[in-house]
Amino acid sequence: MTTAYAEPVVMDHAAWQGWSEMLPEPSLVAVSHGTGDPAGRSATRGLVDAVDAAMGTTPVHDAFVDVEHPRVGRFVCSEELGPDAAAALVPLLLSAGTHASGDLADAAALRPGTRVALPLGPASGLAIVLRRRLLEAGWVPGEAVILACAGSTDPAGVADCRTMAQRLAGHLQVPVTAAFISAAEPRLGEAINAARTRNPRVRTAVATYLLAPGYFADLAAACTPDVLGKPLLVPGENPPQELVDLVIKRYRQAIA
Rank of each mutant, 00 (worst) to 15 (best):
M1K: 12
M1D: 13
A4V: 15
V9H: 10
M11K: 11
M11I: 13
D12H: 12
A15D: 15
G18C: 13
W19Y: 08
W19C: 09
S20E: 15
S20M: 15
M22K: 14
M22A: 15
M22P: 14
L23R: 15
L23K: 14
P24A: 08
E25D: 13
P26D: 11
P26K: 10
S27F: 03
V29R: 10
S32K: 11
G34I: 07
T35W: 13
P38V: 08
G40I: 06
A43Q: 12
T44S: 14
L47W: 13
V48F: 02
V48C: 03
A54L: 06
G56A: 08
T57W: 06
T57D: 15
H61K: 07
D62I: 06
F64R: 00
V67D: 00
V72F: 09
V72A: 04
R74H: 01
R74D: 08
F75K: 04
F75A: 04
F75W: 12
V76P: 01
C77Y: 02
S78F: 07
E80R: 08
G82N: 02
G82E: 00
A88R: 01
A88C: 10
A88E: 00
L94P: 03
S95D: 03
S95Q: 10
G97V: 08
H99V: 00
A105F: 06
D106K: 15
A108R: 03
A108P: 00
A108L: 05
A109N: 10
A109G: 11
L110M: 13
L110V: 09
L110K: 14
G113E: 07
V116L: 12
L118F: 09
G121I: 09
P122Y: 04
G125V: 01
L126R: 04
L134W: 07
A137Q: 13
G142C: 07
A144I: 05
A144T: 11
C149E: 04
S152F: 11
S152H: 12
T153L: 08
V158Q: 14
R162P: 05
A165F: 03
L168G: 03
L168S: 01
H171C: 05
H171G: 01
Q173P: 00
V174G: 01
P175R: 06
F180A: 04
F180P: 03
F180L: 05
I181A: 12
I181F: 05
I181W: 07
A183V: 08
E185K: 12
P186A: 02
L188K: 02
G189H: 00
E190A: 13
E190H: 10
A194M: 04
P200C: 04
R203C: 04
T204N: 00
A205M: 02
L210F: 01
L210S: 02
A212R: 02
P213Y: 08
G214K: 09
G214T: 12
Y215F: 08
A217E: 07
D218L: 09
A221D: 10
C223Y: 03
T224C: 06
T224W: 03
P225M: 10
P225K: 09
P225R: 10
D226W: 05
V227W: 01
L228G: 05
G229K: 08
L233G: 09
V234L: 14
P240E: 01
E242L: 06
D245V: 09
L246I: 06
I248P: 08
Y251W: 11
Q253C: 06
A256G: 04
A256Y: 00
